[in-house]
Amino acid sequence: MRDRFLSRLLQVVPTLLLVSLMVFGLQRLLPGDPAVVLAGDQPDPAVIADIRHRLLLDQPVVFQYLHWLGGLLRGDLGFSWRIGEPVSALIAQKLPVTLQLATMGFAVGIGIGVPAGVVSAMKRDTVWDWAANVIGLAGISVPNFWIGILLILLVCVDLGWLPPSGYVPLTQDWRLSLATTVLPAFVLGTNIAATIMRHTRSAMLTALDQDYVRTARAKGLGERTVVLRHALRNALIPVVTLGALEFGTLLSGAVLIEQVFSIPGFGKLVVDSVFNRDYAVVQGVVMVTAVLFIGANLVADALYLVINPRLRDA
């Protein structure tokens, strides 16, 4: 098991190198000279020359990449000329906000998706199954930022139950923090709940058809025990991997949801940076997102090995 995980860990190295190459290469997509683009409203040749020198644009591309990569390995993601702070410091400020949202969203997704998938499989070909499938399809098809706008209208404006926007850190006032994040987290969670529901249903249908479930029933075990202790335990194994993949959906979704709810997180940082032409921040955010996503996949691999006895002994 350990060898299998170590080999998986080693495979991550070339992937991360390629991601870094891709992120570095983004700058090459800028139309024209990046120094001129970054100079923006100050096309003074002296300013352009200064930018070119500071960003090492006057050096060969390979040197620029290796210098940038060296910085990455030291945790230096560059400098935001617009905000006047290191990119890593900016990300460190904003990341906890998005991680709080993503974690809450994940809990909502699992909390809705798994029970709905189990019920749908148990009540196969009934109105419950049909309703779960329709809601699942709708959940996959609906743009989450639209649902966010509609829920603000209903829950915050019409009913006045929650604040429509803003964010309070958990450390400052946990109740107010939950009040400002519960609705965006719900919207994020419903987005992945549909996918989790579909996979849980499919895995449960497979599990319920297995010999060990038939044996459990033949032994006279109650249906509740058969479903929860035998079928669901096995059905959840592929759902764990899916959960990690959905982490990427949560991060993508957070970009839009943070805009809708005016939450100063990771997503809002990247969008603001796009409009401020703060390209170092955009590159830093993409790199950190990739590292987080790869990390989530590795955690899923490890969990998969731990919870699946067949792989544990392999």
Binding site: L18, V19, M22, L29, L251, S252, V274, Q283, F293
Partner: peptide, 22 residues
């Protein structure tokens, strides 16, 4: 490996980054 690297960046974030630079 190239595909793995592209898939390591969530779809919308990659699209935003590309659109930002393009």
């Amino acid at each position: 490996r190239v595909v793995d690297a592209m898939l390591a960046v969530p779809f919308l974030i990659l699209a935003i980054a590309l659109a930002a630079f393009l």
